[in-house]
């Protein structure tokens, strides 16, 4: 179990705010520029970073993250290079919560046992796989937990409370609460009923709840923060990063 993830939520709570979680694909737009962008994320207020392993067939992602992932792959991103980025990031940011975020196949291809060992050694705190539901998780979750990584469960608006209890049972870290039925991408406003959903989830799990998908600006983040322990910003951060380091810095300052 990761102290850094727990501490990130605890620190945010002490300061009376939600934990700030950002997603960024590794190796985007290329290896050198990617390290700079990740440093900016850590320096400008990310409590937790979801470092994404780009995948050729990202079925859960909208156009912004799809395009960023394809660029990273074209520039040579591999699972090994993303692990190395994680290691460098960890050396410079000892307190940052660091989640390895991937589709199943790159992890399966690397070998789940070896991957979890290498990720933990590189300084990752947790593993999140978008297309591995509870029914298929054992092969990935066991080695993750054995290596000391948190297994991050995802719950969606389609998940009923009984199932949410099942998905989160025994987990450490946090729960990724998907705000909408759909894929990643910026949206305006927040879906109705998010507050009630989060309240219902609190009855089945004591883990911190972080909400993500579609959160594009400070106003949306603040609205989420009224109910959740953390918010996750993906596409909007990637779009800002695409405009360059200064644009990303300015974007992040909007959340501080």
């Amino acid at each position: 179990m990761s102290d850094r993830i727990r501490n990130a939520f605890a620190k945010a709570r002490r300061r009376g705010r939600a934990a700030r979680i950002f997603y960024m694909p590794g190796g985007f737009p290329d290896r050198a520029a990617s390290d700079t962008l990740l440093d900016i994320l850590a320096d400008e207020g990310a409590d937790i970073l979801e470092l994404g392993m780009p995948f050729s067939d990202p079925i859960a992602d909208g156009p912004v993250i799809q395009a960023a992932g394809q660029r990273a792959l074209a520039a040579g991103a591999t699972l090994r290079s993303v692990l190395e980025q994680g290691r460098r990031l960890r050396e410079r940011h000892p307190e940052l919560g660091l989640v390895l975020f991937s589709y199943a196949n790159p992890i399966y291809s690397y070998g789940p046992e070896a991957l979890c060992r290498d990720a933990a050694a590189a300084g990752f705190d947790a593993l999140l796989l978008t297309d591995v539901p509870h029914e298929e998780e054992a092969e990935f979750r066991r080695p993750a937990e054995a290596a000391g990584l948190d297994w991050i469960p995802l719950v969606s608006p389609a998940t009923d409370p009984d199932r949410a209890a099942l998905l989160t049972a025994g987990c450490t870290g946090f729960v990724y609460v998907i705000t909408v039925r759909g894929i990643t991408g910026e949206r305006t406003g927040l879906p109705a009923g998010l507050g009630e959903r989060l309240a219902a989830l609190r009855r089945v799990t004591g883990l911190p709840l972080a909400a993500g998908f579609g959160i594009a600006d400070r106003a949306a983040a603040d609205a989420v923060a009224e109910h959740a322990d953390g918010y996750i910003v993906g596409s909007a951060a990637v779009r800002a990063a695409d405009a360059g380091p200064d644009a990303l810095r300015a974007f992040l300052r909007g959340f501080r």
Partner: peptide, 20 residues
């Protein structure tokens, strides 16, 4: 049975699991 030996399964985002 959702699997054929090591093959098959349901590798989809959680949102689709209740649908399946």
């Amino acid at each position: 049975s959702t699997h054929y030996g090591i093959y098959g399964g349901q590798y989809v985002p959680e949102t689709l699991m209740p649908v399946l």
